[in-house]
Design a protein around this nucleic acid. Structure first.
Length: 491
DNA sequence: AACACCATGAGAAATCTT
DNA sequence: AAGATTTCTCATGGTGTT
């Protein structure tokens, strides 16, 4: 009966309409969320919180950022804890300190490209009036530490989830933090209005990775996997230390991406440096040029005057994967870079998932959407959480091969089922998959970022872009899982 | 202003297939 | 050897936050 209901609403567009809201310009569409918020806004709790915080001596910036992150239901104590944690992390983090360059080595401005993520832009049509829901855009926290990171002395340990978000199952969704405006609002709205936790992996390892995570996991008593990964470039890549010029102040790498610097570029850099002899003789403007390219392309020093992009091995290690995880078995070098660049940072994700260890001492059943090279699987394994049944959905055959190889190499006792296309996962199929073990304890997924990522110069179209629109599969399937599990419980 | 950003696509080169 | 396919090389801005 429940399944029948699901089948009725399984038409994607019908379902989309059910949940989608276009706040601006479409007064006709009545939306559940819009209504709720309008009522709620009648009592602006966060305004009150802001007032008391500023009266306590915090700056408006600190206070508003903290209130935004902690949510309107947070107590003043929780909010001040957050501000405290933020201040601590700020003083700890000393990155990229340097004199400001006078010249930019970018190419000249060109003709304006066509309209950018028109839909999102349309949503925030200027309504300069009092704070309405449409202006309530999710903002990124600074520092980007989410509810807390391992080295932070204080962390937020409590939050109030919307009723609809409370598990089972637990869910964990991930995507790039720096998405076009409005994207995270939409993502949050589609996943039971859970506020994203934005975290930069530079607080976990030697490389930055700014991501948003929407999840309903407990946030108390998190712990990192051991051993802790190297936290600086020098510790992660000790061979580079010898060649690192004193005027390169980097201690952390920038985000690891899917494309890498050309040999021509590193050649140009070598030639630019060679004529000056020792590195201390390199003039200021050349240093600026070299540093600009090094930051842009994550180059490291591998010899005298020689910079190089990271090897796949090194990317693997920085992201927390076992050595050779993506190596061999028929994957090309290019695809290896691509698969790694699109992956989780294992230590970061594991920290968030660590709370599951006490809840599921005998192991978990997991649905993994957009699995990629299995970041979530690796994280759980490293945490010592047994994997009982894993249904992994991943389009790329090369990636599926990687996960399957890892599964066999690590002598998993559980059962791994691989599927290719999330769009093919209908209620019947899902019900059939879940029947042997009752249901999923955890649903994980990081949907395609192609049309959200800042590096995309061609088709950064937002959530409606060709690949990134697959995001909607996550809440669709999560809903299905939830319904099927409730249906089974009723029987 | 400075800076960072899970990328894409055209064309060349290498490799595989017939 | 010719054609088909895969892999590699390289250049290509703009948005949003600080």
């Amino acid at each position: 009966m429940m399944i029948q209901t699901l089948r009725d609403r399984s038409s994607f567009h019908h379902w989309l309409h059910h949940r989608y809201s276009t706040p601006a310009g479409s007064g006709s569409s009545v939306d559940r969320k819009t209504k709720d918020v309008e009522n709620y806004e009648l009592l602006p709790k966060h305004e009150k919180a802001l007032l008391s915080l500023t009266s306590m001596g915090y700056t408006v910036e600190e206070a508003s950022a903290a209130v935004e992150r902690c949510g309107p239901d947070a107590s003043i104590g929780e909010i001040t804890d957050f501000i405290c944690a933020a201040q601590m992390a700020k003083t700890e983090a000393v990155f990229y300190e340097e004199e400001k360059p006078k010249k930019l080595f970018t190419s000249n401005g060109k003709l304006k490209r066509k309209k950018f993520h028109e839909l999102e832009a349309h949503k925030r049509k200027k309504q300069k009036g009092p704070l309405t829901e449409e202006d309530e855009v999710i903002r990124l926290p600074n520092p980007m530490i989410g509810f807390g990171v391992p080295s932070g002395s204080t962390a937020i340990t409590h939050r109030t989830l919307p009723d609809a978000a409370v598990g089972p199952p637990f869910f964990y969704y991930e995507n790039v933090a720096l998405a076009p405006k409005g994207v995270w609002d939409t993502i949050s709205r589609f996943i039971y209005d859970v506020q994203p936790e934005f975290v930069d992996s530079q607080y976990f390892c030697a490389t930055a990775r700014k991501r948003g995570y929407v999840h309903n996991l407990p946030i108390k008593n998190r712990f990192p996997i051991l051993p802790l990964p190297p936290r600086t470039i020098h510790d992660a890549l000790p061979m580079t230390r010898r060649w690192w010029p004193e005027w390169d102040p980097r201690t952390k790498l920038n985000c690891l991406q899917t494309s890498y610097a050309s040999s021509r570029l590193t050649d140009r850099i070598r030639k630019a440096l060679e004529k000056w002899g020792e590195s201390e003789n390199v003039p200021e403007d050349v240093r600026k040029y070299v540093m600009y390219e090094c930051r842009k392309w994550n180059l490291v020093w591998v010899g005298k005057n020689k910079v190089a992009p990271l090897e796949p091995d090194e990317v693997e290690m920085l992201l927390g994967f076992p050595r050779n995880h993506t190596r061999g078995g028929g994957i090309s070098r290019t695809d290896r870079y691509k698969s790694l660049g699109n992956s989780f940072q294992v230590d970061t994700v594991a920290y968030h998932l660590s709370v599951l260890k006490d809840i599921f001492p005998n192991g978990i059943n997991m649905l993994s959407l957009f699995s990629g090279i299995g970041g979530a699987e690796v994280a759980l394994h490293r945490l010592g959480i047994p994997l009982k049944n894993v249904v992994s959905v991943e389009l790329s055959e090369a990636n599926r091969d990687i996960v399957r190889s890892w599964w066999e190499q690590t002598n998993q006792k559980g059962n791994l089922v691989h599927l290719a296309d999330v769009q093919q996962l209908n209620p019947d199929k899902l019900e059939q998959l879940m029947r042997p073990f009752g249901g999923f304890d955890l649903v994980v997924g990081g949907s395609p970022c192609n049309n959200l990522a800042g590096s995309n110069r061609v088709s950064r179209d937002g959530l409606e872009g060709e690949q990134s629109a697959l995001f909607y599969e996550f809440p669709r399937i999560l809903d299905l899982v939830k319904c099927i599990m409730n249906g089974q419980n009723e029987n």
